[in-house]
Design a binder for these strands. Structure first.
Lengths: 144, 144
DNA sequence: TAGCAACTGTTGCTATGGCAACTATTGTTT
DNA sequence: AAACAATAGTTGCCATAGCAACAGTTGCTA
């Protein structure tokens, strides 16, 4: 490994790309009056796939801090999209699941997200996708 | 482009990798008592390279919102690492530059960052770096 | 079984991100 | 010159990120 790329701004590039993606998604949500944020969407998507999870699981699945989960869920509960349900056997645990309105929201926003993902990848191939995945996974694994 | 990767979580992977990187950097800074955040470091690095810039330029160079720049600079000024200087000809403009302490801080933290970058890339090649750069740049360019 | 460790989730605090509204200044137009 | 538009930066607001401290619950162990 040469000096060159060690000092090159990969951190910066990751950050800039992610910000642009997040921005584009948010503006599309706003323009279509979906009344959710990008991260709220990520939790909804996850809850749709897992049906019934705890804060802890959700945090692991989404790479988010558990405190962040706690607060985003609070917002989603206020919007009536998520329901909390106490575990009968372990009173520390709270199960989370989408309400019927939450499922509606998922179905409503899903195609928008699908289209946006297509746009981001429009000039790239499946091999590129595999490459990106491999490199990011490797970086992730390299970090202590 | 098939259905497969459109629905795959590249957004999530970017986010997760960046968070892990940021976290690792911050913990290293904290452990070595550098008394700065990752984003404060990014501004210091940029100011070191450009010597004398405005908020606007800094925002463009770092892909940050100008309001965010304004607030981070405020913190760096309080820490005595950055100095504000009004433009003589255009009184709207404020030039920013590192103080001697700011230059010290840059030199002090630089090698730490250099090592961390090496660690992130340790099992990857320069070709991988070029690939990542190409793919991220393409995604960036694809987004409206 | 009493005490302690581990676990689940919440709250407080500070930092960053982004939008809108604002002040102050400069440039343009009529 | 007066009115208006454009520019530079700040402040208010809300959302996300992460650390520390906390409360309540459960499990383990001496």
């Amino acid at each position: 490994m040469t000096d060159t790329f060690v000092s090159n701004p990969s951190f910066f590039k990751l950050d800039a790309t992610l910000k642009k993606l997040r921005n584009y998604w948010q503006k599309t949500f706003d323009a279509q009056q979906k009344d959710i944020t990008v991260d709220q969407w990520l939790l909804i998507e996850n809850l749709y796939k897992h049906k019934k999870t705890t804060h802890n699981e959700l945090a692991r699945n989404t790479s988010k801090d558990i405190t962040t989960i706690s607060r985003i869920i609070e917002l989603l509960v206020k919007k009536g999209l998520v329901k909390r349900e106490a575990d009968v056997y372990d009173r520390r645990k709270v199960y989370l699941q989408l309400t019927p309105e939450g499922v509606e929201k998922y179905k409503d926003v899903k195609s928008l997200v699908y289209d946006m993902r297509k746009i981001g990848w429009k000039t790239l191939t499946e091999a590129d996708y595999a490459e990106l995945t491999r490199i990011l996974d490797t970086i992730y694994a390299n970090i202590p």
